[in-house]
Design a binder for these strands. Structure first.
Lengths: 197, 197, 197, 197
DNA sequence: AATGAATGAGCTTTCATTCAT
DNA sequence: GATGAATGAAAGCTCATTCAT
């Protein structure tokens, strides 16, 4: 039913991001998004099945671009540990570049109902797959330990980055998020323990 | 105004957890909670200021007990790395023990409105403080590296555990969450890298 | 926000008068008014900000027409005492013509909350101004005494008419309200005292 | 059922006046009145049938005293026109003496539901009867015109005084209400018209 | 394709009254 | 007589979605 292309399709998605970032998820009514996109309320339903579809599409579009950009950048690098650093960098850098998107992603969209959550999780899988690939590569290259459970490592990497961005957004972005790239990478690679001397 | 003690107070909190876990946040009406607690709708307002207050109180009560139990257990141990293992264990074990609570905490309560979120974040701080204490102790004992940024380490520990539990809940708890204690602890301590030989 | 024009706007106002007159102020729920107006509950909120706005608008619309009709009629007359008689006549005649409106105005709307009261008082001022004009004209024409305090005279005129209509409504309109025009006018003009002979 | 005597009965009535004057009719909950009277909520129902009964009783008690005091004073005077002046004076003076009572009587109690209104009107009749008596006496004494309709005169007297007090209360009692006694009396007696010379 | 007026289901909270103690 | 904890009915308002134009 919904025609998921065209200029208006993009306009509506951008409008949704803007409205949600500005007014919060619970104040992001369809009519407000329509006004921001300069279309009629009904027009939204020509491009999307329902409101949840707007949110899920929004997340997929943005997340797709995010993953692709990250993938392109890390594949320029050889070593898995360098790729991991680049992934951490891209994650934090992209979020710090787009204030609205960070708010929407880390705070507002988490309040959405189960249907939207399901769509979001679906879109997230692509990113988790990319993380897995880095881990597997690291093991192959003998850079990461063989006995590291890749599912556990993936949770650590995603969980830490996610928590870092959320915490940064919640603290009104008072510090430079990208400055965390090295400390985080270092911690992932070397762990907490003191090196034997 | 609200009398935040007594048997009914506890009943209502338990009923809220049950209803939210069973029907989801958006289907957890006051009347449903009241029925589950075997009180009249109005009775809830003798013990809580409003619905948000029920949810925040619920989180504070449970989280307070959670943090206290964890603190008591880890303080029986000497070394910071052992304490960290115990904290990981307590986090995962307590969540795996209480199916409803895990769902409420990881999924449903995240959908709540800003007022509830603020109350929840407040309650979470106590837990983050406990994590910080373990990190500081580790540095003092020379068990953890001095040059580890404690804020980054805290984000890693909390972010990883949180992601692990969410992931486990979302996958319908198909595996034993406690089995992740060792892998996670190992990863936190030793990192991803291969040991020099 | 509210679009205060159109056929539906008028329909809702008429429906509100009817429902309030029939069921009383405290039984005039929005849903009842909507049903009477043959619109959905939500439609009311396209034309009015809230329930109080319906009531205030209703009063303003009706009172505005009332004052205008009265003004047009009295301005056809020269002498202030004739104008006063016409004002008394119009007041009593218009009320006796519209059973529902009289009930709403004299009984039901007086039960309304402070917000509505404030709006009503605002609308009443226009009528009081008209009364004042008649008094001033009378003084200019040498028909009314110069030493009559116009504020006191205004209270007498409005207070008496208001009491007359209220009393008539409360007594289930058993007599002809318009028959009071002459006695009231006579009393206003000549007072209680016996003429010196 | 209700025992309409005793110290607590009086306390509750005084408390009701105070609470209504202070917080307004719509904020005068039974529990608030009970607290002000230093009794339990349930105790009110030992002395009154229901909330409406409290309000009606309150009005009757106060109005009874008001009428009696007025009657005693005017009966000291011979002439009906003097009695009328005294009645005007007593009405305005008593209201201006008791701020709370004036607010309750003129503003707040008018918002009450039909049951209370009916009780109030009942209590008012005694006062209207007193006004009638003055008018009849005036006619007998040849002080007031025979051809004055007493019902109309009564409406004028009560309507004007009522409007005067309401207006004074609404204007935050910025002027001295008693200063209106002479102007009002003069207007009632002599009317608006210029004396023939 | 686009519009936007109309729909109507759904829910938190208040408060007069009761009754077991 | 006095208490006050408990009751539960009742209603204004929002907003995603539709559909006639």
């Amino acid at each position: 039913m919904a025609k998921k292309t065209g200029e208006k399709y993009q306009n509506i998605i951008e409008a949704a991001v803007k409205v949600i970032a500005q007014h919060g998820y619970h104040q992001a009514q369809v009519s407000k998004i329509a006004r921001e996109a300069s279309v009629a309320d009904g027009t939204i339903y020509l491009y999307f099945d329902n409101k949840a579809d707007v949110l899920v599409s929004l997340f997929k579009e943005k997340m797709g671009a995010f993953v692709q950009a990250t993938r392109e950048r890390i594949e320029l690098l050889e070593r898995a540990d360098d790729r991991l650093r680049e992934l951490i960098y891209m994650h934090l850098w992209q979020m710090s570049q787009n204030r609205d998107w960070a708010i929407v992603t880390q705070i507002e969209l988490r309040q959405s109902d189960p249907v939207v959550r399901a769509g979001i999780n679906q879109a997230l899988k692509e990113y988790l797959k990319l993380i897995d690939e880095v881990i597997f590569l690291g093991k192959e290259q003998g850079v990461f330990r063989e006995n590291v459970e890749h599912r556990v490592a993936r949770k650590m990497i995603f969980g830490t980055l996610d928590e870092a961005v959320t915490s940064w957004v919640m603290n009104d972005r008072k510090y430079n998020l990208v400055s965390l790239v090295e400390p985080i990478h270092n911690l992932f690679i070397n762990g907490l323990k003191v090196e034997k001397q």
